[in-house]
Simulated scan of single mutants.
Amino acid sequence: METTPRIAIIGAGPGGLICARILQRLGITATVYDLDTPRAARDQGGTLDMHPDSGQRALGEAGLLEAFLAQARPEGQQMRMVSRDGRILFDALPPEADPTEGNPEIDRGRLRDLLLDSLTPGTVRWGHKLTRAEPLGDGIHRLHFAGGTTADADLVIGADGAWSTVRRLVSDATPRYTGVTFVETGLDDADTRHPRLAELTGQGTMMALDDNRGFIAQRNGNGHIRIYVGMRTDLDWHQQAGLDLTETAAVRAALSREFADWSPDLLGFITDADSGYTNRPLYALPVPHTWTHTPGVTLLGDAAHLMSPFSGMGANLAMLDGADLARALIGARTTDEAVRTYEATLLPRSIRAAEGAAEGIDSAFAPDSAVTALAHMTQHH
C-alpha cells in the first residue's frame, strides 16, 4: 500500500473475521464493528461443513487450519435421505482418508470463537450497530453507530449479513422471501434422551423431503441435534392459522397436523423436541446481484450474495470472500485497486453459486422433491 488505509469491517461473522485475521498476520490493521454485546449474546446457529477449496483454504491462509481440524467433526459429513414413511433411502458415510480431503463439520459457535481468539485484543468493537455510512468524498466514509459514536474509514467492508446496512451504499437490492420457511427446534443430549431419533439422524445430516415439505436434522456438538421443519408456505402462515409462535404447544399441534400423514418416527422431530419453535423464513437476494464499483466500499458474504442454505456454500463462500479481499489488499498499491481486483472475482463466482442455490431450494421443496433429492444425493456421492 502507498498509504496505510483505515479499514472498517462491519460484522463479526466468519467472512469479516477471516479477512481481519489475514490482514493482521501481514501487518495491515482493520477494525471490526459488531452489534452484539457481548460476543456470546446470540446463538450462532448450527453446524458448517468446511470445503477444502474455500473454507479450509481461507483457514489455511489465516494460519488456523490445524486448529480447525483439531476441533472439527469428520463424522459429521454423513448424509442420509429418509422417505416420508421412515425408510432410509440413501446413506453416505464420510471418507476415512485425510479429513482435509473431505468437508469436516464444525459448530458455528466454535468456528467463531476460533477466529475471534486469533485476533489481537481490541480488534472487534462490540456493541457498535451501524445506522448509516456517510460519504465524505474521495472514497472516505463516516460511520454512524447507534448511541452517537462515529468513525471515519478509507475502506468500509460490508460483512453485515442479510439485512446489510453497508449494501445500501452500492445496491438497491433487498432480500426476497424464497417461499420456504423453516421452523427450528432441537433435541438435547439426543443419544441418551432420544435414542430412536438420534439413530435415525445418524452422525451428520438427515433429510426427509416430499411434497413441498420436509425435515432436516443436523448433528451439532455436545449431543445436540438441530431440527428444521420445512414448508413451502406463505410468509404469514402462522398468522393465517391464528398461531402465537411463543405458544409451544399450539405450534407443536399445528406442525403435527401439517405432517399428520408422515411416519410417526419423523413426527418425533416435532413432538419430542426439547426447545421451543423458532420461525425462520428463508430469504435470498435477486439473482444475479451485482453493483457498480463504488470507491471506498465493498461487500462480502451474505451482504453480497445472500442465498438459500441449499447451496451448501454460504459460510464457505463468505470465508473465501474474506481471504480473497485480504489477499487483494495486501498485493495492491491502493485500496481502490484492491477492491476492483476482488470484485472482478467475487461477482461472477457469487452469481454461479446463487443460481445453484435457487435451483436447490426449488427442487428440495417441490411436489416431487423426494425423487429429485434422492437423485441429487446419488449423483454427488
Rank of each mutant, 00 (worst) to 15 (best):
G137K: 14
V371S: 13
M81K: 03
M81Y: 04
G13Y: 04
R252T: 12
G214N: 11
R252N: 09
M377W: 08
P99F: 09
F68K: 04
H289F: 05
D91P: 02
P286G: 09
H144D: 13
A67E: 09
S263E: 12
R21H: 05
R213A: 12
H376C: 12
L155T: 01
I216C: 10
G186N: 02
L69D: 06
P94T: 00
G242K: 15
R132P: 06
R352Q: 11
P52L: 09
L197T: 02
Y277A: 08
D43N: 04
L300F: 05
E184D: 06
T341A: 13
T123A: 04
L235R: 14
R80N: 01
Y228K: 04
L17R: 01
I227R: 09
L17W: 04
A72Q: 02
R280P: 05
A92L: 14
A250S: 14
L209F: 15
N279L: 12
A40F: 10
L325R: 02
F365W: 06
T31V: 11
G268E: 07
A159R: 03
T178G: 15
A146S: 15
A373N: 14
D160P: 09
F365E: 04
A20L: 09
L64V: 05
N222T: 00
R340L: 09
L267H: 10
Q218W: 14
G127M: 10
I140K: 08
P281S: 11
D36Q: 02
A241F: 04
T201V: 07
P5Q: 10
L69H: 05
